[in-house]
Simulated assay, not measured.
Amino acid sequence: MEPVGTGTDGVAAERRQLLNVAYRLLGSVTEAEDAVQDAYARWYELPRLRQESILSPGAWLTTVISRICLDLLGSARVRRERYVGAWLPEPLPDRTEWHHAAGAGPAATTADPADQIVLDESVNLAFLVVLESMTPAERVAFVLHDVFRYPFAQIAEVLDRTPAACKQLAASARRRVDAKGTAVPATGRAEVVRQVREAWESKDIAALVGLLDPAAVMTADGGGLVGTVLRPVEGGARIAQYMVAVAGTAPGLHLLERSVNGVPGLVAERAGTVVTVSSFDITEGRVSRIWVVRNPEKLRPWRRAGRPAPGTGTP
Results as ranks from 00 to 15, higher is better:
104 A>K: 02
104 A>L: 08
104 A>N: 03
105 G>S: 02
105 G>M: 01
105 G>E: 10
106 P>A: 12
106 P>S: 09
107 A>N: 02
107 A>D: 11
107 A>Y: 02
110 T>C: 00
110 T>A: 13
110 T>V: 12
110 T>N: 03
111 A>N: 07
112 D>H: 06
113 P>Q: 12
113 P>D: 12
113 P>G: 09
114 A>K: 09
115 D>Q: 10
116 Q>P: 02
116 Q>W: 02
116 Q>R: 15
116 Q>L: 15
117 I>F: 10
117 I>S: 09
118 V>S: 08
118 V>Q: 12
119 L>T: 04
119 L>C: 09
122 S>E: 05
122 S>N: 13
124 N>G: 00
124 N>D: 15
125 L>T: 13
125 L>Y: 00
126 A>Q: 13
126 A>T: 14
129 V>W: 00
129 V>C: 07
130 V>Q: 12
130 V>A: 13
131 L>E: 10
131 L>K: 07
131 L>A: 14
132 E>V: 00
132 E>N: 12
133 S>A: 14
134 M>P: 01
134 M>G: 03
135 T>Q: 09
136 P>V: 05
136 P>K: 08
136 P>H: 07
137 A>K: 13
138 E>C: 03
138 E>R: 06
139 R>G: 04
139 R>D: 04
140 V>T: 09
141 A>C: 04
142 F>R: 05
142 F>K: 05
143 V>P: 01
143 V>N: 05
144 L>S: 01
144 L>H: 05
144 L>K: 06
144 L>C: 01
145 H>M: 01
145 H>T: 12
147 V>Q: 08
147 V>W: 06
147 V>I: 11
148 F>S: 01
148 F>Y: 14
149 R>N: 13
150 Y>A: 06
151 P>R: 13
151 P>H: 10
151 P>L: 10
151 P>K: 08
152 F>W: 10
153 A>H: 08
154 Q>G: 02
154 Q>V: 12
155 I>G: 02
155 I>F: 04
155 I>H: 03
155 I>S: 02
157 E>D: 13
158 V>L: 04
159 L>A: 05
159 L>G: 06
159 L>T: 06
159 L>Y: 08
160 D>F: 01
160 D>I: 02
161 R>F: 06
161 R>M: 14
161 R>D: 13
162 T>W: 01
162 T>I: 03
163 P>V: 08
163 P>M: 11
163 P>S: 07
164 A>W: 07
164 A>L: 13
164 A>G: 04
164 A>K: 12
165 A>Q: 15
166 C>H: 10
167 K>L: 13
167 K>F: 07
168 Q>W: 01
168 Q>E: 15
168 Q>D: 14
170 A>K: 04
171 A>L: 12
172 S>F: 00
172 S>N: 12
172 S>W: 00
173 A>C: 07
174 R>L: 07
174 R>Q: 14
175 R>I: 00
175 R>W: 03
177 V>R: 11
